[in-house]
């Protein structure tokens, strides 16, 4: 499968240029690859290695450390149900059980129609709204069996297409630094002195 498309390669170069060292762009580029294909392909990892100056083994070593990157196709919607303490105290286990029944897959499984992948997740920083879950990293709070069912139905019916992009896309807004506004990014070893504004005088 796919290396980064020309368009994404251009975007990748733009992202790389924001960092003092190219390798720092590794994780953002892996996200870009996952956004393109829905999961991270071997070709994409090899391509990213070329772009940031790392071997494919190093790219895979980094990528596989992180929960969010998938190395095989997953559902259009990945539903992560939190099972850590606060959510567990508020009934996460029952919710997971219900979700398995509703979707007909075990935790970690993907539905026949390739619509849903169900996963047990760890704390999602919404502990007061327990139990909570994320669909492609979009929250649902204080989830009940009923609200879970309607969530699944809405997703199936495409009623949430505007809120929830398909798996791979996290943020839909990208940072873009206007060249004329950029202060300037320099390789760390080429900077020898303090910033010129750091001279004991007020800057304004």
């Amino acid at each position: 499968m796919a290396r980064l498309s020309d368009e994404n390669t251009k975007l990748a170069r733009e992202i790389i240029a924001r960092y003092p060292k190219p390798r720092s762009a590794m994780i953002p580029l892996l996200h870009l690859a996952q956004e393109q294909d829905g999961w991270v392909t071997e070709d994409a990892m090899a391509h990213i290695g070329e772009l940031v100056g790392a071997t494919p083994a190093e790219v895979y070593g980094t990528a596989s450390f992180y929960e969010m990157f998938k190395f095989h196709p997953v559902g259009k919607y990945v539903i992560n149900i939190c099972g850590t303490m606060s959510c567990a105290l508020m009934g996460a286990e029952d919710l997971m059980h219900h979700a398995e029944q509703k979707l007909g897959v075990r935790m970690g499984g993907t539905t026949e129609d390739g619509m849903f992948t169900l996963e047990r997740a760890e704390c999602q920083a919404a502990c007061t709204e327990a139990p909570c879950l994320q669909t492609n990293y979009r929250f649902s709070f204080r989830v009940t069996n009923e609200s879970f069912d309607s969530l699944v139905d809405d997703l199936r019916a495409g009623r949430l297409d505007n809120e929830v992009p398909s798996h791979g896309t996290v943020a839909r807004v990208r940072q873009s630094i206007p060249p004329d506004r950029q202060a300037g990014i320099h390789p760390p070893d080429e900077v020898r002195d303090a910033p010129e504004w750091f001279d004991g005088r007020p800057a304004l």
Binding site: R18, Y19, S24, I27, P28, L30, H31, A63, F65, Y66, E67, M68, F69, V170, A171, V173, Q175, S176, I177, P178, D180, R181, Q182, A183, G184, I185, P195, E196, W197, A203, L204
Partner: peptide, 30 residues
């Protein structure tokens, strides 16, 4: 993006001598 456009980030912030870039970076679950 808005702050860069409005001159609050980047080169000569608010017309001062102060310049700095802020780069948005994001993790992947760990």
């Amino acid at each position: 993006n808005d702050a860069y456009a409005a001159g609050y980030i980047g080169r000569n912030i608010m017309g001062s001598r102060f310049s700095v870039d802020i780069v948005l970076h994001w993790g992947a679950g760990a």
